[in-house]
Design a protein around this nucleic acid. Structure first.
Lengths: 207, 207
DNA sequence: TTTCGGTTTGACCGATCGGTTAAGGCGGGC
DNA sequence: GCCCGCCTTAACCGATCGGTCAAACCGAAA
């Protein structure tokens, strides 16, 4: 995929995209000036505009790459059937794995949401399928309305996953331990699976 | 409290602080230029520097106000004793109520974390007490290590609360409903309490 | 060899940024 | 009436921002 993009319009465009990706994750949209992007890519600033037209389109390009990857990773996990529990565990794993493999992604989405109303649409398109899949997967065991509706669990579960990563630098300081280490990630993953099972058991009791 | 600050150095300083607070929540640190802060406060730009010295100190002032309020709200909720469940429910309510009463706060913290390593320290000081209280409250029923350790529930619970608000504009679009409405807030609060009870029941079973 | 179209560059633009400065109100004590 | 200290302002500073442009480069077709 990345190789295809490198040859699509020359590898310099790919270097620019990669630099924009890195800087967006490190210092945010406002901090990542076109000049710094060009410098990191080892390229003249005007070339960035030649390839991508404007700052907004450049970073939109960066986000769409993640969006597509995120989408396909979760679609794959959802397509295969199984019981409610199996599908939830698989969705959870897919979401978790995707973020581990794309460590800049959660901070990036977080920046978009925090930046205000302007970029809500993009995040919305990103979140909508995940929301619908989880709603469908849960529909067998949750009521349609009220505190136990699927939409509540959507916020709770996705928050439990993504917050671990977005707050990771803070957690590293509060705990005496790197939240990105292999053991810490395994522990978090096990916690999430326990959470799914416990919530499902609680829902069964509530009926 | 606010009245005390208004008279401390004249009400113009308070107007500047309020404008800075609003803009920080609306358009972020980088977007909130000193000129715009001054305009919104109805004041000359140089006056902002006269009172607060620099942009960084101005917004640090804004954050410290929230920090103190957050701290005291949760300390109050924790001080009173009771069973594990009672303390957890009270902490949850206090956290939730505080955010409802300070709607710009979560987006503000989110921006700090997203902005990179620079502001981690402030968020850390903010989160550390909450972490320790929840850890202490949970210590009776959770193991010290592994997937059911208190630190895991800290991330899960705080994420379940704060994510509802930070993703609120996105959720409004995905659902056909305003997440900030009275009924929606009540429903979310009930969900969180159900979550606490269910997790506690699950922990009791796990022993 | 010349031409040509895509690529790359340095120089430049107006706007805005955070921050400074010197000078003007302006009310209260002498 | 004058002076002093706090408040407030317009004007200005250098730096950086996103974006433009005309010229130079360069490999392939003719």
């Amino acid at each position: 995929m990345r190789a295809a993009e490198s040859t699509e319009r020359g590898e310099r465009a790919a270097r620019i995209l990669e630099a924009a990706d890195e800087l967006l994750g490190e210092i945010g949209y406002d901090g990542a000036s076109m000049g710094r992007v060009a410098d990191r890519a080892g390229v003249n600033k005007a070339l960035v505009f030649y390839y991508f037209g404007s700052k907004e389109r450049l970073f939109q390009h960066v986000l769409e790459r993640y969006y597509a990857a995120h989408q396909s990773a979760l679609a794959e996990a959802f397509r295969r059937g199984g019981s409610v529990g199996e599908r939830l565990h698989r969705l959870m794993d897919a979401y978790f794995d995707f973020i581990v493999a794309n460590e800049r992604y959660p901070r990036l989405v977080q920046q978009l949401v925090a930046a205000g109303e302007r970029h809500v649409e993009l995040v919305q398109h990103n979140l909508a399928p995940l929301f619908e899949w989880l709603t469908e997967a849960l529909s067998e065991v949750t009521p349609e309305h009220g505190p136990l509706a699927a939409r509540q669990f959507f916020v709770t579960f996705s928050g439990a996953v993504i917050n671990y990563f977005t707050y990771s630098p803070v957690l590293a300081a509060v705990w005496g331990r790197d939240p990105g280490s292999r053991e810490a990630l395994d522990e978090r993953r096990a916690h999430l699976h326990w959470l799914v099972d416990t919530v499902l058991a609680g829902l069964a009791d509530a009926e």
